[in-house]
Design a protein around this nucleic acid. Structure first.
Length: 727
DNA sequence: GTTACTATTG
């Protein structure tokens, strides 16, 4: 035993290893986990004089270049100690630069190789191209391609595939396709890279065509192929091809994995086949955030928010995509308050929103008139460096306008580095609903000067601008020019605008003529515009006719009955009024309750008529009493002409007194300091009496009051309104 | 004695 040990002691030593006999450090590299450990091993090799061993050098550089915590500065330092680097070590360096997204350094390394006569091989280019950004690819892509062809590496499949990929990344789809078409040899990856190129530019037909061609040529798809095809099917809602891709999996031609199953769920969910999506989801061995999010998004897009929420609540992990999908689900169903509540929870969970989330939240703020939160979001964008793209800018403009803050909307517009058609349209519509008709039209002319073609939505804004400011003749001219100048055929909404324009200006007969002569069947919105005009101009006969037309289209439309009641009341036709109310009772039709929103300290408060549910109800009503007293001293007498109840004057007054916007104004007065603007969003049109009260309040308490009603804004200041009582 | 290309969610 002893003699054996003395003959070959290393064999039985527990610390030794046959290979480490020559170079003990190499084993240490295998188990190296961090840069700290690496530097320790490195200093040991320095002590033992092994640093000049190429194997050791390779190990150190390779660790820095490939490990996730690898330090490229250290790699470069090590590299510089090597007098004659091999292709291998240069390739590894390039791979490292691509890994940390420094393609410029990769390029420098490549040039250094050429300078030092180290011949690149077919490994060099895939490593190099992998790190390319759009700009680098555009700058050097073609030249590099030239080198490759000259050296004959283009016959290598890996090299060729990475060039197809690189060209597609920088948007040179024709170059990519050129390499693809002229390739002598192809494997599935070549096809996959090409498929992903068409996915990137959203040419889903071409994805479909290539998938067919693969099949015809007998190229077996891999799971990556199917994921790409399914992604295209999802975005183009192509259930047929999607099912064909699924067949491959079912026929065991492709082994399913997590990503593939997620892609299947997504495809079925996008096509509205939630049962099939759930079928896959339930059979999965493991599920990740993406699987869950695809289900949540599927239900959210189908309008099944509550179901979506059930799955959302069961998720063990949620990322910003999951949160955004859920928030969008509420937006889609116009449940804006819940969207905002969810956004607050997202904040508490410390999940960082991206620009998509921000656009959704701003949209919710716009609908609710939640200016405080909207402003907070704007600060958030700046503070957290959220990508401030055109979409975010447009959403900010829309938010400010829908909160009645014209100046801030204009400020955003001025600061936007890039604007598009939607920006112009948002400006035109926004100015129009805020009663700035002239400025809206100026914007429109500027848009034309910038050679941006208006579309049908832009023209809605233009006609709206004319309507809200009573510019009847201009409106007629614009209506004509949309076809003659821009080839846009007016749709039913444009005819609605014309009826509105003429009707509100009192040209009821002409408005009716427009309806009679329009080339399509008038819808309830068109008739509704005429009915609204009849109310303002107290024409009961035409109102009856318009109401009858709407009720034929929408027998359950409560608002029409109410409007008809208002008109009968205004014309003192009490008998007809009673009849309509009886019909409503018989048919079980409820009127849409009037509702006002007011945001205070970031919370949206909601009031309906006669509301007593608010925690501050007592204070609100005593303020309302005080307010009414003050206003009466200042000469206010309630305008009960539009109260449809055939009841005594006193009851009429108390009905008026409880209108939701008055409650909101009282709440605004007690909840904010002197001089603070009161902003209210009303779901219906403002009544004459509330309009009068708001004017007086703005004067008496020296407060700006801004009310957004169903169709437009009223900016009350110093006793008058921006609508000049024309609405 | 070592190294490549392609993929999913709003």
């Amino acid at each position: 035993m002893i003699s054996m040990a003395s003959v070959s002691p290393t064999r039985i030593s527990p610390h030794s290893h046959p290979r480490s006999l020559e170079n003990p450090s190499l084993t240490l590299f295998e188990n190296c986990k961090s840069m700290d450990q690496l530097t320790q091993i490195h200093s040991q090799t320095i002590k033992t004089g092994l640093t000049s061993n190429p194997a050791v050098q390779n190990k150190i550089v390779a660790f820095c270049c490939t490990h996730e915590s690898g330090d490229m500065t250290y790699a470069r330092y090590m590299f510089d100690t090597i007098p004659e680097p091999s292709v291998f070590i240069c390739n590894t360096m390039i791979k490292g630069y691509s890994r940390i997204h420094l393609p410029e350094n990769g390029i420098s390394m490549y040039l250094e190789m050429l300078r030092r006569n180290v011949k690149p091989d077919h490994y060099t280019f895939p490593f190099l191209l992998k790190g390319f950004t759009h700009d680098i690819a555009l700058a050097c892509g073609k030249q590099l391609h030239g080198h490759v062809v000259k050296n004959g590496f283009d016959s290598n499949m890996f090299v060729q595939n990475s060039f197809v990929h690189m060209y597609s990344l920088c948007g040179l789809i024709d170059m990519a396709r050129g390499v693809f078409d002229s390739s002598q040899i192809r494997d599935v990856v070549t096809w996959n890279v090409m498929l992903s190129a068409y996915n990137r530019i959203k040419q889903f037909d071409e994805v479909r065509r290539l998938f067919y061609e693969m099949d015809k040529k007998g190229v077996s798809p891999t799971s990556v192929t199917l994921v790409l095809v399914l992604s295209a099917c999802s975005k183009s809602k192509d259930l047929d091809i999607g099912k064909r891709a699924h067949e491959y999996v079912k026929e065991c031609k492709v082994e399913p994995n997590l990503i593939l199953e997620n892609a299947l769920i997504d495809m079925y969910a996008a096509c509205g086949e939630m049962d099939l999506a759930l079928g896959i989801f339930r059979n999965m061995k493991t599920r990740d955030v993406i699987s869950w999010t695809a289900i949540v998004a599927g239900f959210a897009n189908a309008g099944e928010v509550d179901l979506a929420r059930r799955y959302f609540d069961q998720m063990s992990e949620r990322d910003y995509v999951s949160w955004t999908a859920m928030i969008d689900g509420y937006l889609r169903m116009n449940r804006f308050k819940e969207a905002l509540t969810l956004f607050r929870q997202m904040q508490t969970s410390n999940i960082r929103p991206d620009e998509f989330t921000i656009v959704s939240v701003l949209t919710a703020c716009a609908h609710l008139g939640a200016l405080e939160l909207g402003e907070w979001i704007k600060t958030y964008i700046e503070k957290h460096k959220i990508k401030n793209d055109v979409y975010v800018g447009n959403a900010l403009i829309d938010m400010y306008f829908k909160c009645g803050n014209v100046e801030k909307a204009q400020g955003i517009f001025k600061e936007m580095p890039r604007i598009d058609k939607f920006t112009w349209t948002a400006m035109i519509v926004g100015l129009a609903i805020n009663g700035r008709g002239e400025e809206a039209l100026d914007m429109f002319f500027e848009m034309l000067k910038a050679r941006i073609a208006p579309d049908e939505i832009t023209y809605i804004g233009v006609l709206c601008a004319c309507t809200h400011t009573g510019m009847v003749d201009s409106g007629k001219r614009f209506f004509a020019s949309m076809t003659t100048q821009h080839g846009i055929k007016p749709n039913v909404a444009h005819y609605g605008c014309m009826v509105d324009l003429l009707g509100r200006a009192g040209h009821l007969k002409e408005a009716h003529e427009v309806i009679k002569n329009m080339p399509m069947k008038p819808n309830s919105i068109v008739w509704g515009a005429l009915l609204g005009a009849c109310r303002v101009h107290k024409d009961a006969e035409m109102a009856e006719m318009a109401a009858k037309q709407i009720l034929e289209l929408e027998p359950e439309n409560g608002a029409v009955y109410v409007l008809l009641c208002n008109i009968y009341a205004a014309c003192n036709r009490w008998e007809d009024l009673r009849e309509v109310r009886q019909t409503m009772k018989d048919r079980g039709i409820k009127k849409t309750p009037g509702c006002s929103l007011i945001e205070m300290n970031g919370i949206v408060n909601e009031f309906v008529a006669g509301d007593q549910s608010h925690p501050k109800t007592t204070d609100i009503y005593s303020k309302l009493d005080e307010m009414t007293r003050d206003l009466k001293i200042a000469g206010y007498s309630p305008d009960t002409s539009e109260i449809s109840l055939d009841v005594g004057e006193e009851d009429k007054e108390s009905a008026l007194y409880r209108h939701s916007e008055k409650l909101a104004i009282a709440f605004g007065l007690i909840s904010s300091g002197p001089g603070v603007t009161i902003r209210i969003v009303k779901n219906l049109r403002m009544c004459v009496d509330c309009h009068r009260v708001a004017k007086l309040v703005s004067n008496l308490y020296n407060r700006e009051v801004i009310v957004r009603d169903k169709t437009r804004f009223h900016h009350f200041r110093n006793g008058s309104c921006s609508c000049k009582d024309y609405w």
